[in-house]
Design a protein around this nucleic acid. Sequence first.
DNA 1: TTTATATTTTTAATCGATTAAATTATGAAT
DNA 2: ATTCATAATTTAATCGATTAAAAATATAAA
Lengths: 348, 348
Amino acid sequence: MVRMKDVAERAGVSVATVSNVITGKRNVSPKVQKAVLNAIDEMDYHVNMIARGLKTQRTNTIGVILPDVTKLFFNDVLKGIMNAASAEGYSISIHSSNYDFEEEKRLISTLRGMHVDGIILDSCVDYNHLHEWAEEIVHMLPSSIPVVSLENVLDEESISSVIIDCRYWSSQITQHLIDQGCKKIFYISGPASLVHEHERLLGYKHALENNGLQISDDLITYHDFLSGSAYEVVRQALSSGLEFDAIQASNDQAAIGAIKALKEANIKIPEEVAVIGFDDVFPSSLVTPAVTTIHVPRCDMGYQSVMECIRKINDETSAPRRIVLKCKTILRNSSVSSLETSWDLDNW
Amino acid sequence: MVRMKDVAERAGVSVATVSNVITGKRNVSPKVQKAVLNAIDEMDYHVNMIARGLKTQRTNTIGVILPDVTKLFFNDVLKGIMNAASAEGYSISIHSSNYDFEEEKRLISTLRGMHVDGIILDSCVDYNHLHEWAEEIVHMLPSSIPVVSLENVLDEESISSVIIDCRYWSSQITQHLIDQGCKKIFYISGPASLVHEHERLLGYKHALENNGLQISDDLITYHDFLSGSAYEVVRQALSSGLEFDAIQASNDQAAIGAIKALKEANIKIPEEVAVIGFDDVFPSSLVTPAVTTIHVPRCDMGYQSVMECIRKINDETSAPRRIVLKCKTILRNSSVSSLETSWDLDNW
DNA sequence: TTTATATTTTTAATCGATTAAATTATGAAT
DNA sequence: ATTCATAATTTAATCGATTAAAAATATAAA
């Protein structure tokens, strides 16, 4: 292992000088500089980032906690995160909480120990205990470490957030169904405890209310998208004789499961039952019929969160921000039969 | 920032004792142990992994370099890597080389500086310069750091590899087309310089030879799957009047692009032109017709590479291994019309 | 030449842990 | 009570960098 000391000896200078050449923070005469660079080259020296990190208290690493990195949604978020991080010269340390708050806290603890320069956290805080849980998280983190919360607003006072307005966009897409003439919209929600699931459901309800339609609890089903499947939910609804003229799923994967069930039952989409999702993950354009959905700027969410994190790393005094990103309605054949849609073959 | 020293003071012992309690490597009396643990708890102390890493020369981190983490294929590899790493208590540091060898070397350099405990490298070495390039890589890495090569065999002497036998499986699936009666198989290859693309093409050629079919260069097209698209390749082939009764693409994404082009030209799949891919990424089961392909155990490749890496970290003297994983032929409607296939809705 | 000033280089402390070696405490055996 | 073996604890060196502050050297002005 070549140490800075070895380089210094070879170049006939002190380690301090070598350090100065490398960091470029202090003056070094051209002669000496050249000698040092030569020595570095000849010896194939690489700065030991651990040692540097110990002294500078910087690791150039951003810790990332996502509910489940293996899911398409978060994979796209990760893309954005990695792009931004790599462009800004940061490494990232990724972890999955698997939607387990205890694990999430354990990971925060780990990241603290790793002395990452900042943390990007897509928390799985429970909607019903939002305040307490958020407080727990805030307490775990020294105020010195910048945190950016993805998807949730945890604490306006201390934590920046990068979010989308789930409620608004969910109501927009419900409105689309209503505009298409749908009156009985079956809603498939993910776990009710997740904040964005809750918000999406609220959006659906608001849209119904705004249009004078009745909200029926029979039409609202919850499923655990980790184990349960929307496919089964719809099969069951169909066999139970429940009547509906549309299905709104809280995410695309559920919508596609629903479509599978409807197709097997020979129900025409969208004529008999229209289907819509949320997220716009790419399979939505691949299945037949393609899924009408809300495009969530996942990549950009990742990108923005890194940029905000770095901003806070470089300017400790800056106040936390709330960054709200725009979504977009994507109409496809699952709700409008007349459209021409084509497969999205890019970026996967 | 709470330091071990602070904990020691609070507990009324020396830092060495605190360290002993934490690492559990040396005897500490129950009384003292309790006092120390209390202090740690009260002060919310977290071991500084940087400081520990400096002393122990271990970071508990495995560096990972993949050609493009954002691609579905590598995302699955990453799943396996993260699962294994997290189960074994390792962190990972992920990077994308973007199929650029210079960038790949830069990243190796970065990882060396980070003092990761091991490296998993899915190299983009050029088939035509395999030996030299591999040597370059070997030279960059001190023999002390365990390296596992994914998809390629770089250097049997010093680097373990986790691979699949692309050539064999490619010939298997070509054979399937031939068994179906196809005689003129249009082949869409990725960049010829990539080792596994080269191998897949070889498999195709071997299968043709074995069956007494002629290898025609007109039927072999290369496209850069980063910028070019198989969709365009097939459109062009069709408009040029090229005759073929099947398309073999070197990966599923290209196969799906080909299917799109064929469908637009109103060509019946598989009756007029059968299509096959390679990899078995999940969109292959979602599109219509679903794509016949070779299932590559991507997750397991990631998993095994981490396990092999950790094995070498713990046993420096152990010889490098070559781990060959099995693939599987997956028949679907793009080559066999009579099959019943259903959407794969799991794990994305 | 001398002195003052600016520039370059070195010395030495430091970051926060681990660990070999030294020291002290504990307890059993005589 | 003394001795000896063992267990528990502390001292102090160390990992490999950064960085004030001190020292050495170069440059300019008188």
